[in-house]
Design a protein around this nucleic acid. Structure first.
Lengths: 196, 196
DNA sequence: CATGGCATGTAATCTGTTACATGATTAT
DNA sequence: ATAATCATGTAACAGATTACATGCCATG
């Protein structure tokens, strides 16, 4: 439901070919909406068919690239979508799920995986910080860029949150037992608070 | 890929019928892995077929409920899955996408929607805090429950992050442009979140 | 002209969502 | 008996993922 709008946004920022879009979905756009090249090509086809984007004539045919641009109808569609109200999506995080599973299974090592994620989040944070330094240096930011910076700061804030949360969790887990070993084995366990 | 494991986890915590599971996916489990009843019933069928869970004999047929429990094979499957390494999923957040779209479109009101989300996140945070107070009172927490608390704190931390981020963003946006204005009092009126 | 890799795409599958259908129990 | 609602499901579709397929073109 959001992918077409992500593509419209990207193409408004800069008309691009499918591959270029794919690259951009690995970078800036992908920081808040990821997509693979298969999704992108398929969606480009659909959007072209319904007349929201169009192939730009392009230099007579240099190579094989197709360049797409947003048509007026596409801009209108995007404008409408942005104005909608949409509730935040419920969280769906496999790591949290695995921790909960580890809680009920007992005796599963989880510390290594947390450490690994810590590293990944630190890398991502470093990347965001670098981007902010480059794209939004000190002084400030045009009216139009303010929103862009706000979005980037969401990324920075999220990564920062994960880093802190993992750090604290590791301290908790290491402070007490060798994270893995036997808590309560056996099927006897009715967990203290199965719910809510 | 995670839904079956979410169900296995839930059933290990407590054998349940489809409807009970659905309820629990609106509460505790759903805080980190959401699912609708249709997904759950379909997945219960699959898991039964492949022998990871089984219908528990049950009182001869009181009503129509079916109660499911995890079989040894299911526990083994879950144990294996928890031990896997999995990278964090790339972020996919429609609100951030809409802000980015608003940035490129210009002149779209976005402040009201941010305020609305602020209210929703505050509600969710309040719920988590209440749960923590009830389920993990002061002193501490059995070895087995420590992981459960860590997971809950991820929820608390995430909601806290969003609240702070939105608050800051609103200050930024209202401090300057007439992005939308109209009664832009900062923290005063939380309009009692009309939406759930 | 063969090879590798770049660029675009198709196909099959899986996951998730929305809308509807059915049998059982409870209330009127 | 009828209606309401509870509990379990089915069907159709939309979105996302994985694996594979094709045409181009630069280089050796």
């Amino acid at each position: 439901m959001s992918l077409p709008h992500a593509i419209l946004t990207a193409l408004l920022e800069k008309p691009s070919s499918g591959l270029e879009l794919t690259r951009r979905f690995d970078r800036s756009i992908g920081y808040f909406w990821s997509a693979t090249h298969q999704q992108i090509y398929r969606e480009l086809g659909k959007l072209t068919q319904v007349g929201l984007i169009g192939e730009v004539p392009q230099q007579p045919s240099r190579g094989q690239r197709k360049e797409y641009e947003v048509l007026p109808a596409g801009r209108a569609e995007l404008t409408g979508w942005v104005a909608e109200t949409q509730d935040p999506r419920p969280v769906r995080d496999p790591l949290l799920l695995r921790l909960r599973a580890a809680a009920v299974l007992g005796s599963v090592d989880v510390v290594d995986e947390l450490r690994r994620h810590l590293g990944l989040h630190r890398d991502q944070l470093a990347e965001y910080v670098e981007i902010e330094a480059r794209d939004f240096p000190e002084g400030q930011v045009e009216d139009a860029d303010r929103l862009r910076q706000i979005v980037l700061r969401a990324g920075i804030g999220l990564e920062t949150f994960w880093i802190e949360w993992i750090t604290r969790s590791l301290a908790q887990l290491e402070g007490t037992g060798p994270g893995s070993e036997a808590g309560s084995e056996a099927g006897t366990d009715e967990p203290a608070h199965p719910d809510r």
